[in-house]
Amino acid sequence: MRAPASPDSPPPAADRRLGGAARRLGGAAAEGGVLLALCAWLYWLSTRFDSVPAVLSQNVPPELFPRMLLLTIAGLSVVMVWQGRGIAAAPVPRVRRVLLVAAAAWIGCALFAMTGVVILVACCAALCALWGERRPASLALYALLYPAAVYVVFVLFLGLRFPDGVWR
């Protein structure tokens, strides 16, 4: 999956973006750094949990277990960085369509709360088009029939209630 960094070969584009220090340490350095920062932030959050008397917490305060986990993750992250030293970061794959699909999915979810089942038609059409469907008839047929089938099965047959949204 990952190619070992060779001193003779030029670093890949993704590796160049990491900068000199990260390149020397390897791709795991960035991952470890993110995890350590996350652990530090969550540990700090755990210091802000409400305090409870020892008798109520039965000597197992609420922050004890999460902190044990955070320390474990931090320790493992250090091991991961150490193990990954000298290994270049993997190249970042194509993301444009992923971003477009993700955006459509997020917008679809936001609108689902407001409009309920109706948005599924637009959602199906948008995602289908993003995946490369160019025939208008197929696209329209799919965008109408699939949500209709979903409505019949889940709402009429199983009795699921979708958000009413603006149709309330």
């Binding site: 689902f112 599924l120 959602c123 995602l127 995946w131 490369g132 469907e133 699939y146 699921l160």
Partner: peptide, 15 residues
């Protein structure tokens, strides 16, 4: 076709 499969999977995830 992937263009029909994955949007259908998304709708099932949502529901």
């Amino acid at each position: 076709p992937r263009q029909f499969l994955w949007p259908s999977v998304f709708v099932l995830c949502l529901i």
